[in-house]
Structures are given as C-alpha cells and as structure tokens.
Design a protein around this nucleic acid. Structure first.
Lengths: 108, 108
DNA sequence: TAGATAATTAATGCATCGCTTAATTACTCG
DNA sequence: CGAGTAATTAAGCGATGCATTAATTATCTA
C-alpha cells in the first residue's frame, strides 16, 4: 500500500497507467509519449512494477507492459472504505460516486 | 488531484486521516499520537489542508482539524473509475498516438 | 559477425521532502 | 502585565526523488 501510494504520487506514473488502461504497450511506445528520456521512463516503470501496478513481459527485443487493475482498484477502494466507511453518512455527491463504484445506477 | 496523491504518499499523513476519520481532533491531540515533533506534525497537517483533505478551525487557543471525506472519496473513486473503468468502450486515443508521433507531447 | 534497435543499469547533479531545534504568534488566566 | 500553553513559522540539514548522459545487455537482421 505504501508503494502504491508512492507510485501514484507522480503525474508521469499516473499518466503511464492511463495509457496502459487503454492497451498494452512496449517500453518504447510509452517513452515516446513523454518528453523525458527513455531511462527516466524506465525508472518510472520500475517503480510501478515494484508497486504491483503493472506487469512486464519480454517478447523478443521488446518489453511489453500491462496494467494490473486489481491491485490498483483494491488498494484505492480499500483505503477509501477504511477512511470513508459506508456506515457513516456521506454527502450527496460522494455517495453517488460510491454507489456507482459498486455497480449501482449512474444517476439519481 | 496531484496534491491529493502527494499528500497520501506519506504514511504519517494517511495515519492522521485515519485518526480524523474517527473524530475531530486538535493539532496537539494529533501530535501526541506520533513519535515525531509537533512542528513536523504541523507541516503534515498543512500538506493535508493544502490538498483539501482536512479543514481546520481555530477555537480559542486550539486548532481543531476534521476530515473532508468528500474530497478524498471523490478523488480516489474518480481516479479508479478513470483507470479501471467497469465496462466502457475505449477512449479514442489512437489519435493521440499519431499526435504524439508528430511531436505533440506531455498533456496534463 | 557487424551494426542497428530496444531497454535497462550506472553514475551523477540538483531540487524537494521530512525531520530537527529555536523563535514567534496567539490565547488563557493568575 | 507576565507566565504558561497551543500552534505555527523559520532555518538548517541529511535523505530521497527525478532527471540527465554514458555504458551495458540483449535481440534482430543484413
């Protein structure tokens, strides 16, 4: 959990996760989406992998990265539950979001 | 959102939020729950307040802190929805890819 | 095998974070 | 007022984070 929150504290890393939420990508494909150097991106990927937020697989010359959705969702949802438990009354807008997260209706 | 994730990257700050999820507390009551100095806790509280995760109110000699649940829940739930969509058609990002190839980079 | 490409590792510079102690501000009450 | 308590601000310092360039490892291909 510590590693997950540390990983999410960087906007570059959050953006990498956003890209990977669309499709699996190689390290190079990720790097070319940023203005920073390739080694810098490689280090960010290492942080994300260390936090269990992404997984990598080497295929030939390329290393393919993909998002590990369960870990991200479980960690963040679990933390919200801990600090903002549903047993407590929530404000309107926040309640709507929580309900939606559980698969409830989208609108009220 | 950047400030929220930065704030949550510290275990001391997450613990402060956990304490405040149980009840409103003064700065001193929070500080006495940690082994670090009072100014250190004050700085953590400042980070949390800056991120909109807590609010403070001075009453006489004391400063009372309370959790702002909706910001925490909305930010984290919103982010999970964004990266781990329930069942959602993919965003149109194939276009962003070709944009990036032409030199357009580093949005957000 | 040589040369190009993909990616990571290594070494380094610099800014920011998180802590400390000391000083300052603000409030209470004799 | 002046002493005591609550809290923040200020200044300084070591550790860590994030970026760079250079070097290394691994793979593909002519």
């Amino acid at each position: 959990m510590q590693k997950v929150f540390e990983a999410l504290a960087s906007s570059v890393r959050r953006k990498i996760l956003a890209y990977l939420s669309e499709s699996e990508l190689t390290a190079g494909q990720i790097a070319e989406r940023f203005a920073i150097s390739k080694p810098a991106v490689s280090q960010h990927l290492s942080v994300l992998e260390n936090a269990g937020l992404v997984e990598s697989e080497k295929r030939g010359q390329f290393v393919h990265y993909r998002l590990v959705r369960e870990n991200l969702a479980n960690t963040l949802n679990g933390y919200v539950q801990e600090v903002c438990p549903v047993s407590r009354p929530l404000k309107k807008e926040s309640k709507a979001l929580s309900e939606a997260a559980k698969g409830g209706r989208e609108d009220d």
